[in-house]
């Protein structure tokens, strides 16, 4: 019995609270769009805030129910605070935010934003690879790093290397790495090195020193930058370069790939047993 009347009172307060919240927004909207008089607006807002404060009794003020004069005084105080906050946001902070956002949008080109997207993707992927404790997560982070680098290549007018990056690094090397991880997981232990490895603090210190030095160099060194940069497609130029100026490296690379192919097969295949050979010979 008591429970059901408490429940009904709670529901009523909840309804009044919702009504009050709706009222605050509705009155503000009426003032803004229907040119409701300022006095009437403030009065109605005060009523709505009072409704909200009374409704809040259902929740936060359950221990100390406000009613009568206390309620009116308390809601007046709340109304004052809210009015100040609203005035501050609307008249001071708002224009400032809108102004600076406008300036920011004027400052940042879409192109730059896309660059930063790729740069963050690359560096975050690399960081994930470096610091993740789970090697599978590291491998997936590497995917993002490779993708980001491919995006950067596009930015630099290197369309062919970008595609090669996606095809070979992601399609080839990353798949190989995932295979290797899964195989080594299966045998229970990682193939460990006997050399001592350094702890994470030393590693982080090394990263800071290396990155700091190289960044200083990147920013400060007097690189001689050409005035005009080309974004023309490069595939045809690369093809010609490979068959004229860089013919020798191209051919040597093919010999290296052959040797690597044979070598990988030698190492990975099953051993030819001498007994099998003699069987074949007989």
């Amino acid at each position: 019995m008591a429970n059901s009347s408490n429940l009904r009172a709670w529901l009523v307060r909840l309804g009044v609270l919702a009504l009050g919240l709706f009222g605050i927004v509705a009155v503000a909207a009426l003032h803004r769009f229907a040119h409701l008089g300022i006095g009437l607006t403030l009065g109605l807002e005060y009523v709505a805030v009072t409704c909200v404060v009374w409704g809040l009794n259902a929740f936060v003020f359950r221990r100390l129910p406000l009613s009568g004069l206390t309620l009116l005084v308390f809601s007046a105080a709340v109304f004052g605070v809210l009015f100040l906050v609203a005035y501050f946001v609307g008249a001071v902070l708002g224009p400032f935010l809108i102004d600076s956002a406008g300036r920011f949008i004027g400052l940042v080109h879409l192109v730059d934003l896309v660059f930063y997207l790729f740069a963050v993707m690359t560096v975050a992927g690399a960081a994930g690879c470096a610091f993740s404790r789970n090697i599978i997560y590291s491998a997936w982070s590497l995917l993002f790093a490779f993708m980001g680098v491919a995006g950067l290549y596009v930015f630099l007018g290197a369309d062919f290397p970008a595609v090669a990056q996606v095809l070979i690094y992601i399609g080839g090397i990353l798949v190989l790495i995932l295979f290797a991880i899964m195989l080594t997981k299966q045998i229970g232990g990682d193939p460990k090195l006997t050399n001592a490895h350094l702890g994470l603090p030393v590693g982080a210190a090394l990263a800071v020193i290396t990155a700091g030095t190289l960044t200083y160099m990147a920013v400060m060194a007097p690189w001689k930058i050409e005035p005009v940069q080309s974004y023309a497609p490069v595939s045809a130029g690369l093809g010609i370069a490979f068959l004229t100026e860089y013919l020798l490296p191209f051919e040597v690379a093919s010999v290296v790939l052959l040797a690597a192919l044979v070598g990988a097969v030698i190492i990975a295949r099953k051993e030819i047993k001498e007994t099998q050979d003699t069987v074949l010979e007989s």
Partner: peptide
């Protein structure tokens, strides 16, 4: 771009010196 390269290099070095796993 050079800074992105430097960051990649540094993170690669960290990976190399802190990891135990060969892969």
């Amino acid at each position: 771009f050079l800074i992105v390269g430097a960051a990649l290099f540094a993170l690669g070095m960290v990976t190399v010196v802190t990891r135990r796993n060969a892969v």
